[in-house]
């Protein structure tokens, strides 16, 4: 099974790691509070420091999570950017699946109800 055969899942492999390096490096830098402050103060200038591709820059500016993933973003690093933007993983889930956050959370709760009904929990 290769990446191409996994349409439902994401394999962050060498191809994506190469494509996404600048974007992921920018996200990784946000571990430091002074860098988070710099991003918030002037997002364009901060992105300039890391040499993002046009595709990456557009995706970040549009808060387009699927676009960031397509541009090589890795979710562990994108989550740091999301945190700065005030978004949690459930906000990301909603943005990626075309649902509202409440709908996304409700789907997770429903999965729990179904698992309990089956005796899995």
């Amino acid at each position: 099974m290769t990446t191409d055969e996994l349409p439902e899942a994401v394999l962050f492999d060498g191809s994506l790691a190469r494509r996404g390096y600048a974007l992921n490096k920018m996200c990784f830098s946000l571990n430091r509070p002074e860098n988070r402050a710099a991003l918030i103060a002037d997002e364009d200038a901060y992105l300039d420091r890391f040499g993002l591709t046009d595709e990456q820059r557009r995706a970040v500016q549009a808060r387009d999570v699927l676009g960031m993933l397509d541009a090589g973003g890795n979710v562990y690093y994108l989550a740091k950017l999301a945190g700065v933007l005030g978004l949690g993983v459930q906000d990301l889930g909603a943005l990626q699946t075309g649902t509202t956050v409440d709908e996304f959370k409700a789907q997770l709760l429903e999965a729990g109800r179904q698992a309990r009904a089956k005796g899995d929990c």
Binding site: E8, L66, V75, L78, G93, T97, C121
Partner: peptide, 11 residues
């Protein structure tokens, strides 16, 4: 966490 299958679980 990511992609169109975000939220996927498999009990």
């Amino acid at each position: 966490l990511e992609g169109r299958r975000a939220g996927f679980l498999n009990p």
